[in-house]
Design a binder for these strands. Structure first.
Lengths: 199, 199
DNA sequence: TGTACATCAGTGAACGCGCGTTCACTGATGTAC
DNA sequence: TGTACATCAGTGAACGCGCGTTCACTGATGTAC
């Protein structure tokens, strides 16, 4: 038992990679089993030798996409100072190239509004992904809270920039979000941040 | 031709209202014709007396939901000063009640990441909705750019707060985004807002 | 006002289609001797 | 090393199901006279 196991593991890896792309490009409802398997160079019937069902695959694909994206957009900034960290993240994330990378971009932006409607496995992966990204970014961003807010700004900005059909408005959204992210007064961790009332 | 036309218009109104709820609660792929018609108190067959197809309904439902939400979350602040406008919007938008209002909340947050994958009619409605919201908010927010960025922060924050399965983290996201929205140094419209490179 | 006919919003069965999943089968890989 | 058998990743047809859409039909509403 060696060649066979290696090949199976390699197939599984390709399936997850294909699912991670399709999931971001087509959304949670759009990444079909047959489509993913075809992209992995297999036929759909063999899928259940690797996963108990579609949702298990999507959860793993999401977790993988988020793990890769975490390093890519929020990582590698250990040496930098606070303000530079924020600027670097904004520059990496909110730009036309990332906007165009539908199947290879940040999974938060690709699926943000789907998580609320997704099943427990996907929500779990999303939660762990956000926790991990916030933890990675917290030192440079000035704490967990600012890290979370920066991520939210990036995710909302990229999703809206991708969603509008007017390129000028789309560019404007990216630019405006970069600016807001940079415009924070330094050093304050106080304040309530607004009332909880209203709606 | 009077009673009949009135009843038809009333049916249509109920169909659009039901679609606007379902669309936000279930997503673009989840708002089925039969489901929407049942919620409007009708059977699915009669749908095509009102709309040429499903996508036309969804586009109209989205436009309506965005129009209502625009006044609700971004409007009625004509008298307020800049900083108060931003605080009011953040308080209205990023709170637990709105987070829980899945089928009656802001359509941007409910569908943000779906727009990029949606057909032209939905993208058009989303674009017009964002333009209109930014125009409404621009005077109080200090310009169109800051208005767009504030909307993106709200949308990203609410989508992430809804997506995670950990209530404490969800609260933290709301709080952190309110804080970031309020932390802007006043009066600056300059700056590039970060590089366009990277990805 | 009353009567005969026309219209058409709404009904419910049926359609074609794509999807997730199941299953009998195949053939390369692994094991026993 | 060689041979007989076992395993199991992958194939492709078939399934049940839900969906958007179509269509013949119904009955209340509207029109003509």
């Amino acid at each position: 038992m060696k060649l066979r196991a290696l090949r199976k593991a390699e197939s599984r890896r390709r399936i997850v990679a294909a699912a991670a792309r399709r999931l971001r490009a087509e959304g949670a409802d759009g990444a079909g089993v047959a489509e993913v398997m075809a992209e992995a160079g297999l036929t759909h019937g063999g899928f259940y030798a690797h996963f108990p069902g579609r949702e298990a695959l999507l959860a793993e694909a999401l977790a993988q996409a988020l793990a890769v994206g975490r390093d890519r957009w929020f990582g590698g900034l250990d040496g930098a100072e606070g303000r530079d960290v924020v600027a670097a993240v904004l520059g990496r994330y909110l730009n036309p190239r990332h906007r165009a990378a539908l199947d290879d971009g940040c999974a938060f932006a690709a699926l943000a509004s789907d998580f609320a409607r997704a099943g427990p496995p996907l929500r779990r992966a999303a939660t762990e992904g956000l926790e991990a990204a916030a933890a990675l970014l917290a030192p440079g961003a000035g704490g967990r809270g600012p890290a979370l807010a920066l991520i939210a700004l990036c995710v909302g900005g990229l999703a809206l920039a991708r969603g509008v059909d007017d390129p000028a408005l789309s560019d404007e959204v990216l630019r405006a979000c970069r600016r807001l992210g940079l415009s924070r007064r330094d050093g304050q961790e106080d304040g309530d941040g607004g009332t909880d009332l209203g709606g």
